[in-house]
Design a protein around this nucleic acid. Structure first.
Lengths: 84, 84
DNA sequence: TATATATTTAGACAAATATCTAAATGTTTT
DNA sequence: AAAACATTTAGATATTTGTCTAAATATATA
């Protein structure tokens, strides 16, 4: 839970998730959407991956990232405990 | 949204929310539940308040804190956009 | 009015975080 | 095999964050 909230606590990472919501993308494609160096994006991807919010699959020289919506269920359940 | 995720990105603050889920509590009562100085808890309460996740009401020398569940709705909606 | 109680504010400090550039790794193409 | 491309790793640095102690503010009580 800690890792998930940590991962979600950054606007860039949340935007990456929004991007991956529409389609799978390579690290480079993702980086192209931001005004930020590739190593920085790579680092954000790593944090999202560690939180299991995304998965990575290598395809030749590319690495394609996909969103893992099942993890969102955990956050959802946590939030729901607060609904009166 | 940024403030909300920022506020939720700390185990102590999430525990404070869990406490307030059961009943309203004064700052001191809340602080008693943690092995942490009162100023530190006060700071956490301030962050939760700024995110509108809790509200404060003064009663004599006490300040009572309550959870504001309506804000959780925003997070809920954001999360739901990821449910496939 | 003086003292005790509840809470916050101020200031300091160590640890965590986000970012960068440079270098390394691995894959494809010529 | 060399060059080009895709991505990550390493190392540096500035900023943010969580915590503390000491002091300030505000209320209640003796």
């Amino acid at each position: 839970m800690n890792d998930i909230f940590k991962a979600l606590n950054d606007a860039t990472r949340r935007e990456i998730l929004e991007l991956l919501k529409t389609k799978d993308m390579s690290a480079g494609e993702i980086a192209d959407q931001f005004n930020m160096s590739k190593p920085s994006i790579s680092h954000h991807l790593d944090i999202l991956k560690r939180a299991d919010l995304i998965t990575a699959e290598k395809s030749g020289q590319f690495i394609f990232y996909s969103i893992n919506t099942t993890i969102m269920e955990d956050v959802l359940q946590w939030i729901l405990t607060f609904k009166k």
